[in-house]
Design a protein around this nucleic acid. Structure first.
Lengths: 208, 208
DNA sequence: CTATAATATGAGCGATAATTCGTATTTTGT
DNA sequence: ACAAAATACGAATTATCGCTCATATTATAG
């Protein structure tokens, strides 16, 4: 590796041209991660695929890590866009229906870009800035906790914190594994069955 | 990196001395992973910490990957040792008690070497031979499925495959996350509460 | 039109790390 | 005791990779 970086603060793209460059770089990173794997995602290769020079890359991203982080952010935002709104209605629903909706949304979220999700979850070493990569579900956790609070009297759980932890963790786990490790499951019937059973698991628990 | 490997098949340690070398290498790898992180685990450093030469390292391990795989295997075996036997008794128990035992064992397994488990789960890019690293729970899955089969008539689930998948995945997820990401949870009371609630979640689901 | 700022370029530096291989030491069988 | 086999050694090789910087091109403002 090279000596200590001298270029510290990167420029913020202000012209149209440079915004396109930034986009191309993030997009190229995502493409390489998916099609060639984390190993092959060198800064030189990323620049090449993006159709720009390495120099340009370092104009906007201080490190390779920052690029990957940008990909994570973008992916996270796409998921959030998918989920947001679908969750607003949930508060008004009866528990069973609400839970079913939540599980269904979790599946939907994992299907936004499964291959990228897979790479981000399995191949990226969570070191440095990427340590916090498990915060995938921070927002989900808060939303779910609020949901429980709104229905406190209908539920047979006293520790809402603990209940949220168990529910969110479980939903995340079985949807994640179903979508990413058992692609044969992806037939629509199987997926419906998964949602049914996942709903039973969580709703049953909450209602005591 | 160097040119194509010429040394293909590594020797199998036959003398006492070499077995000690192999052990030292695996142990050193584990120590470095835990104390310095995956990045610092270079083959030269591993050899140094093990107190042997890099040359010796390559006598027994064809690649760095193989070394990490050996660490994974060793860890897996320690866990299996912990779990095996505790599960034999389970078949004879009533569902609630059995499930509680299963959840408790999952927690215990995660506590065998939490720091190593953490590194293996979070910092190792699952590429090449390590792709299969998620098979952590293959055996668990089979054991659980058998358990369900033995209690088929007492349960309100028809698809045992799906039920096993959901239960094992969920148990693994909330025990893993509790032990590795919420160390403040480790107070024994909190841990008991986790086991209580986890048991309710799973047992409730199975009994309909 | 021209000066100045923004953006783009890419050869190459410096560092690191995986792996090899010729040689030295130790163990084993006889 | 001696030869052969096993084991150990570690400097050197080689590939790769992150990153910089001197220079060129393009856009913007006055």
């Amino acid at each position: 590796m090279a000596r200590k970086p001298l270029l510290k603060a990167r420029k913020t793209a202000s012209q149209e041209r440079s915004r396109a460059t930034v986009d191309a770089l993030v997009e190229a990173t995502a493409r390489i991660l998916v099609k060639e794997g984390f190993d092959k995602a060198s800064t030189n290769r990323i620049a090449e695929v993006a159709g720009v020079s390495v120099g340009s890359l370092y104009q906007y991203f201080p490190s390779k890590e920052a690029l990957v982080a940008a990909v994570v952010d973008r992916h996270q935002q796409e998921i959030t866009e998918t989920v947001r709104g679908e969750l607003a209605k949930v508060s008004a629903m009866p528990i069973d229906e609400a839970v079913r909706q939540l599980v269904a949304v979790a599946v939907k979220a994992h299907r936004v870009d499964p291959r990228l999700h897979h790479v981000l979850a399995e191949q990226i070493p969570r070191v440095g800035k990427l340590e916090n990569l498990a915060s995938f579900n921070r927002e989900n956790f808060v939303l779910f906790r609020d949901f429980l609070e709104n229905h406190r009297d209908e539920l047979r759980v006293d520790d809402l914190e603990l209940a949220s932890f168990i529910c969110v963790t479980s939903i995340e786990a079985f949807t994640h594994n179903a979508v990413l490790h058992h692609s044969r499951m992806l037939s629509n019937e199987k997926m419906e069955a998964l949602i049914d059973e996942g709903t039973r698991l969580v709703a049953g628990y909450l209602k005591g």
